[in-house]
Amino acid sequence: MTLKADDVRSIAHLARLHIDDDSVDRYVDDLSSILTLVDQMNQIDSSGVKPLANPLDASQRLRADEVTEGDQREKFQAIAPDVADGLYRVPRVIE
């Protein structure tokens, strides 16, 4: 499997990652070689095998519906890059 520069750009956009134009080629090479490694999976016929999402064969534990968390806004917002009036701020979102 080999990727093209445009593939890398569109994946990077999906992942909201800025990639410098002059490093695109390197990503193309690196990602292509990783995909070549990954393509080894196709050597094995796994048809009919039930996918395993989690190593433990367990079920989800359910929590009681209780309010256990109080207001920690001050503490949480002390580490935020831009807050005002209790709100996190980002460049204007146009809807």
């Binding site: 999976m41 196709n42 094995i44």
Partner: peptide
Amino acid sequence: AYYLKAQQLRRMIK
């Protein structure tokens, strides 16, 4: 081709 396949192989490895 990738994620689901990997999860199948994961079971085989287990």
